[in-house]
Amino acid sequence: MKKLLLLLLTFAAIFAYAASDTESADKKSVVATVNGTPITKAELDRQVGILMPRSFFHSTVTPEKLKDVEKDALKELVKKHLLLQYAKKKGYTIPDSIMKREEKKIRKAFGSDENFEAGLKRANLTLDDFRRELYNDLLMQKLYDKEVKADLDDEALRAYYEKNRYKFKVPEKIKIRLIYTRNDPTDPKGKEKAMSRAKEALEKIKSGEDFADVASKYSNAMSRIKGGDMGFIHKGMLDEPIEKAAYALKEGEMSEIIETPTGCYIVKLEEISPAVQLKFEEVKDRLRKELKAKYEKERLDAILESMKKDAKIVYK
Rank of each mutant, 00 (worst) to 15 (best):
258 I>A: 02
61 V>P: 09
269 L>V: 06
158 R>A: 07
165 R>C: 08
303 I>D: 07
214 V>E: 08
114 E>N: 07
84 L>Q: 15
314 V>I: 11
33 T>G: 09
316 K>Y: 10
299 R>A: 15
60 T>S: 03
51 L>I: 08
93 T>F: 12
284 K>T: 11
267 V>L: 10
35 N>A: 13
249 L>I: 02
113 D>N: 10
19 A>G: 14
217 K>C: 01
149 K>E: 07
226 K>M: 09
93 T>S: 14
55 S>R: 13
37 T>C: 06
191 K>C: 00
92 Y>H: 03
278 L>A: 00
183 N>W: 06
102 E>G: 06
5 L>D: 01
267 V>I: 15
204 K>Y: 00
312 K>D: 12
85 Q>H: 06
213 D>P: 03
28 K>T: 09
315 Y>L: 12
292 K>C: 14
44 L>P: 06
258 I>N: 02
89 K>P: 04
30 V>F: 02
20 S>E: 10
189 K>E: 07
272 I>H: 07
50 I>T: 07
313 I>S: 00
72 D>R: 11
223 S>E: 15
249 L>G: 03
206 K>T: 05
289 K>F: 10
266 I>T: 03
160 Y>T: 05
112 S>Y: 11
97 S>L: 05
171 P>N: 13
39 I>L: 10
56 F>P: 01
285 D>R: 09
193 K>W: 01
123 A>Q: 01
1 M>Q: 06
200 E>F: 01
163 K>N: 07
279 K>Q: 15
253 E>Y: 04
127 L>R: 11
133 E>M: 14
38 P>H: 06
211 F>E: 05
117 E>G: 04
212 A>G: 04
123 A>D: 02
215 A>T: 12
93 T>H: 06
54 R>V: 13
61 V>Y: 03
42 A>N: 04
94 I>Y: 05
285 D>E: 15
154 D>W: 13
71 K>P: 08
109 A>F: 07
24 S>P: 06
227 G>M: 01
173 K>D: 08
240 E>W: 11
7 L>H: 08
152 L>Y: 04
204 K>T: 03
173 K>T: 12
244 K>Q: 15
285 D>F: 14
181 T>I: 04
88 K>P: 06
163 K>M: 02
39 I>S: 05
308 K>C: 01
272 I>T: 14
